[in-house]
Amino acid sequence: MHQHSLSPRQYVILGLVAICAPLGDSCLSRGMTAMPPISVAHPGALIAAVFTPWIALGIALLIGFFASYLTALSWADLTFVLPATAFGYVIIALLAKFWLHESISLERWAGILLITLGVGFVAQGPSRTEHPAPPVNEPERKDPDVKEPPAKRPDVQEPPAKDPGVKEPGIREPEAKEMEA
């Protein structure tokens, strides 16, 4: 199992996560704004809202999103999947421009640029934390798990011994960073 480079199928799954989430959200908000205000006293109205068409479509899209999201989380970190799939907002905005001919304000172009930059940042790195292997292209840092006992304040409430070896048992191969996506 190769952790760092993603297979084409894994890119498809990340793409589905990216597209389904904003589309589903737009359907939900479209459905909810069309409804009369719901008060805290009648939460049952929220359940009834589930069966209106836009909200039902939104939920169907979000179920598709959730299945692909779970799959992605099974082979990648949460802090990789979330920023990477925010690219969906960019895709939706560009679709709205070129397909629906909506105009994109300067503010939105700035948003598109920032998201693209952010996605570029995570995509360069590993998709999954390999606990023994430090990131290769970072300037040499101290291993965060190494304790520096003398300098500590006496009142810190840390447990005396950390156990760096418990999580992710099977993965040990120190892999070099590769694959500039």
Binding site: D77, T79, P83, A86, Y89, F121, H131
Partner: peptide
């Protein structure tokens, strides 16, 4: 993710989280 999942949130991922955060706000606003 850093504290509970012990993911390696290096500067690259912090930068991504902040950039995407501001970007999503600008884009969706």
């Amino acid at each position: 993710g850093k504290f509970f999942l012990k993911e390696n949130v290096d500067r690259r991922r912090w930068a991504a989280a902040v950039l995407v955060c501001v970007g999503v706000y600008l884009l969706a606003h």
